[in-house]
Amino acid sequence: MNLSSPTGTARSPLARFIVTVLLWLPVTFAVWYVVAPVLMFAVRILGMLAVLPLGDLVSVIEQKGSALVFVTTLRAGQSAQAGGLVSVSVNGLLYSFGMPMFAALTLAAREPRRWVILALGVVALLPFVTFGVVADFLKNVAITSGPLVASQTGFSAAQREMIAFAYQFGTLILPTVTPAIVWVVTHRAFLERMRGLTVPR
């Protein structure tokens, strides 16, 4: 592969694809940033479903732009009267930045029905974004908020360990890996064609 040579770039479909992805990235990042509040509205709905098994721990999830605010029933102080209710704000962008990457890859592949694939892919990624957002919230109330608040959640030590792992996995792995996997799954024909063409020598 010869990226520096115009002829080489023209010859290698993979090099051409990579260059096209890089050209699409600024556009998709800009669009993602603008439409993030809409995406977070969907994540908020999914988040409300995700916290249902937690009983009355979360009273409501509010949205402020791209941030979701989990208003809990937990008290910030020791007694029932002391302190207000604990609220946790989670930046949804931290868990959805893989979407512009997915969009750039999809648009650069130029497959038939790419806009449908793009829309379906974004929808498929929403549950994973929700997972990261909810895990972030749980990490805050169960681990980093301190013993006063954490003790009210009633989570066992094993559950706190699971929450810590879910948070790490939802932060470091899922936001980047799931868009790549969804793209590979939705572009098998493209990948097979790409595999059929070896790098020019």
Binding site: L14, V21, L25, G98, T176, A180, R195, P200
Partner: peptide, 24 residues
């Protein structure tokens, strides 16, 4: 995103070098 794109590109290049990938 760029680092994961790098992983994907490396994987794509590797897949293309595997036995069975056709000549360019």
């Amino acid at each position: 995103a760029l680092i994961m794109l790098d992983v994907l590109v490396v994987w794509l290049i590797w897949v293309r070098t595997l036995p069975g990938a056709r000549d360019d």
